[in-house]
Amino acid sequence: MRAWMSILPLWGRCRPQGGGGGGALRSESPLRPLGTSPRGGGFLASHGSARKGNGVAWLLLTLILAAPAAAVMPDEMLPDPAQEQRARTISKDLRCVVCQNQSIDDSDAPLARDLRLLVREQIAKGKSDAEVRDYVVARYGNFVLLKPPVEGDTLLLWAGPFAVLILGGVGVALWQRRRPAATTDAPLSDAERAELDRLS
């Protein structure tokens, strides 16, 4: 119980506000489907059966168009497309420390924006991808890597599933071997044969 209570004050922690209002709301949403603009609401408004087919078409179209959009703003981008592409690739693997289960490439949180700019700044300075990653890890730890490296304390994470698979396989093998050899057919006894003849 005490451990739980100690978490409570953290609820009051603050994050820097975004440029506009509603920034907090936007940063919470994991996906920003492109197709779901207010116009998309048109098919919802059409109740008539005559427009039903139209509605389905709309629904399909919005579903097809719905794709997660990156949070990168045009003013953040690097002039060199190759460098920008590298920044995007690195950003996709870096966790937004505020929202935790989004990459900084996906997140609208102001801190994620700051980190995106930082990544681009380091790239513009001529740092390699690994150096840029190390730069961020030096500040926030391995936690910022969405794909943690294989190390002592992450060994369970990486090897765990395979260990369970091997243990399960060994278990199944043992069980198979232990099973009585019931599969070899014993010849029918005379009584059984007589019974079979009577039935057929």
Binding site: P9, L10, G12, R13, C14, R15, P16, V97, V98, L111, D114, L115, L118, R139, Y140, G141
Partner: peptide
């Protein structure tokens, strides 16, 4: 960012030699 701050308030205990010895996340009670 250099301090690895993720939210305010955060407090660092810095020793005589300028090393960080402890970090408190959230308001100090």
């Amino acid at each position: 960012i250099d301090l690895g701050v993720t939210g305010a308030p955060e407090t660092f205990v810095v020793d005589k030699k300028g090393r960080v010895r402890f970090k408190i996340v959230g308001p100090i009670s």
